[in-house]
Design a protein around this nucleic acid. Structure first.
Lengths: 124, 124
DNA sequence: CCTTGAGCCTGTATCAACTACAGACCCTAG
DNA sequence: CTAGGGTCTGTAGTTGATACAGGCTCAAGG
């Protein structure tokens, strides 16, 4: 399954341990054997993670999936909360980017004993 | 010092433990006593952290400060590396934001048994 | 047939950057 | 004199994995 999905084997076992992935059936020697429902579920998890959902959020999404919900309103609500968080992070980082680039721009980069960046960090 | 800086006391002790802050002198009863060089240094750390520098990066900056560097080129280089990382994170999150908002927009939010978001996560 | 290398198994430790206690001590105000 | 807050040390928890250690199994090559 690691090869099929590109997911690290240890990460798959980790997902199993925390209950994101179900305990799969085992061979007589104890080896896990997966079918494509597992692969499908793992890909769902990986895509959700790639969109920045936390594992707890993924757990919530999977719970909705597993319970064969009748409306998609809950899913939409979760996605919108997450979207808000993503936008907040972008805003934070953009502010940081602005301050940092302004500060770096003030730096001459030469052999001067004073450094504008250090000064800014000390005296901002 | 926690009150003076807004930094959590346990965080200050943590910074001391990992060597970001120096071991301060102690009162006879073992209480730490700080002066304004400590406050100044802690504020430097807090500002650096607020700009997204990791503690290792902060350690590097402080090392340059402590060693009374002759040029600010090194500081500038560190800041530019960090600025690149910040910009990369913004790009990542912007991509996530786009995909997520497109997906959410496709969701009707009504009582339909199919959810566009879940489908997208399964079949993207 | 035997070895070698790869993969799998469990369980534990590690990372960043804190935060949250437990259990003890101390200090000040009412 | 006591009640509350703050401080002290040391340890454990958080998120999302990743990295072993030590052992087992399996397939291919010599």
């Amino acid at each position: 399954m690691a090869r099929a999905t590109g997911c690290n084997p240890e990460t798959i076992r980790y997902y199993e341990k925390i209950g994101i992935m179900p305990d799969p059936p085992r061979s007589t020697k104890g080896y896990r054997s997966y079918d494509d429902t597992h692969v499908r579920r793992l890909k769902f998890v990986m895509r959700s993670r790639a969109l920045g959902f936390s594992l707890e959020e993924v757990r919530g999404l999977l719970g909705l999936v597993d319970n064969r919900i009748q409306t998609c309103a809950e899913v939409q609500a979760m996605a919108e909360v997450h979207l808000g968080e993503v936008r907040a992070k972008i805003a934070d980082l953009t502010r940081i980017e602005r301050v940092l680039s302004e500060t770096v721009a003030r730096c001459t980069g030469d052999a001067a004993p004073d450094c504008a960046i250090i000064d800014a960090l000390f005296d901002a």
